[in-house]
Amino acid sequence: MPVMQSTAAIARAGAPVPSARLDGAVVALGDRVILRGVAIEVLPGITVLRGPNGSGKTTALRALAGLVPLLRGSVDVAGDLLYLGHRPQLVHGLTARENLAFFAAFRERRADVGVPLRSWGLGADADRPVEQLSAGQRRRAALARIESERCDILLLDEPFAELDDEAVARLQRALRDSAGGGAAVLIASHGHADLDRDARRVYLMHDGEVQG
């Protein structure tokens, strides 16, 4: 097992504290209201967003990532942000390695993407086009971006879906390492209650609102 690089501590020594804030966010799709004035604060450490399906967790994450326009309210992000949705977001036709290399080059990271890909169990398969990989492999390739891009804000939408036990443990370790290195991590998930132990804050969403 390669040594995880402590994400933010190395990359951003002396930089301001990474944070992502959603304040009074109202989001509607057509006539349907998805978020009704949501306030979420993501600071260094692990923040967990819980709630049933359809409660607005995904939209809240997408709003933080700047992917949905707000009708009201504001988004405030300080730091490099990595958003991993519940689909792997890898472009078909490219290998897992090429996909990750693109993201790393875009952010001007000089890391070798092969190391994180191997540590997530994609050795030889890292050089096959992603559409030939299994759902679980694509998922893990996407999660390897946590280490290949080393961002100081991580937004993860149901990151444990489609992972076997080993990969779940691997992800939990990666998240703890990131948080320990000073990264602000937000995880939207309705399982894995043990996450809450490590979390500095747990938000509960219901019907487009934060309840606690």
Partner: peptide
């Protein structure tokens, strides 16, 4: 308006 009403009712 319906957004705000629903929001007020839910709060």
């Amino acid at each position: 308006g319906s957004l705000l009403l629903k929001r007020a009712a839910g709060a």
